[in-house]
Write a protein that binds this DNA or RNA. Structure first.
Lengths: 159, 159
DNA sequence: AAAGATTGAGTCCTCAATCTTC
DNA sequence: GAAGATTGAGGACTCAATCTTT
């Protein structure tokens, strides 16, 4: 471990820390406002911007980066809250199409305003160019890891 | 929701996606190599670089951004694997000091090499300046959210 | 057989309560 | 009483197995 590379792993650590802290801050803000969790906003927002305002469990899971299993149960909860509905897909009777309800659209709107305000406050010192640049670098990062090179020799440790 | 701000929330989404994908990729890589999880590496690395190579549960939890509760159980597991040890703190009999064992240092070394290789591969197209710049922006982001402005009116929704 | 979706078992996190020591 | 740490209860995610439809 000794020489401790200064660059890339430090950046990675900054990434993990930023994610943990920003996520916590946003989450607290939403909770304090009596709004549903960040994940709920994500789900509703993803549905809302979808082509027909409806997506299948599969697609939803892929967008939000969740396993289909987790998404199935997640939809259970959000549906129980009355924010989305499961409809049978006329084209494929195996599939369900998830749609946002009236109430769902309402909480999405309120949550969205709240998020915009939170970010506007926190990023007050940022120029638009800086924000855009950061987003681009993050997309680039994701892309670079998407086509991850399948790596060399497996070690033997097994916890 | 209508006008859909283009800037900040898009950047936020890029952030969430990048985190989810990179985390998954690194995790798969470590697992495929028969190495312990990303969180284990984090814990061991944090201990290893600490002043005396030892930290208390509290401090460890703060560093890794985990609740003290979760950290207590986490240490249970990692200790059961033989990678760390709980020692009584001579200065304060309430506290435990967590130290890395020989075996822990070994897996940390192997995991570290693996991580460095993974990042070197994925970030092959990045210059050192770009990596450093990204890290700086991420630190700035975390800082800006750390002193989050306590926000306006609570809404009334309650899922 | 393969894909969409769900259910069961196991793991791990969070919140609240508790125990010991300061 | 407050702080360090742990334990109990509940929620939420993952993997593997299952059921239905293609």
């Amino acid at each position: 471990v000794s020489p401790l590379e200064p660059d890339q792993l430090d950046a990675w650590r900054a990434f993990l820390n930023a994610h943990a802290h920003v996520t916590r801050a946003i989450g607290s803000d939403l909770t304090a406002a009596g709004l549903p969790d960040l994940g709920w906003y994500d789900l509703l927002w993803t549905l809302y911007r979808a082509p027909e305002r409806r997506l299948r469990v599969n697609e939803l899971a892929r967008e939000v980066v969740l396993s289909p299993t987790a998404m199935s149960r997640f939809v259970d909860r959000v549906e129980a809250a009355g924010y989305v509905r499961r409809e049978p897909d006329p084209a494929d009777r195996r599939a369900h199409r998830i749609t946002v309800t009236e109430r769902g659209t309402h909480v999405l709107t309120v949550s969205h305003r709240r998020m915009v305000a939170a970010f506007a406050g926190a990023l007050a010192g940022w120029t638009e160019e800086e924000v855009v640049a950061l987003a681009e670098q993050l997309d680039r990062l994701r892309a670079d890891f998407a086509r991850a090179p399948e790596p060399p020799d497996p070690q033997e440790i097994r916890p």
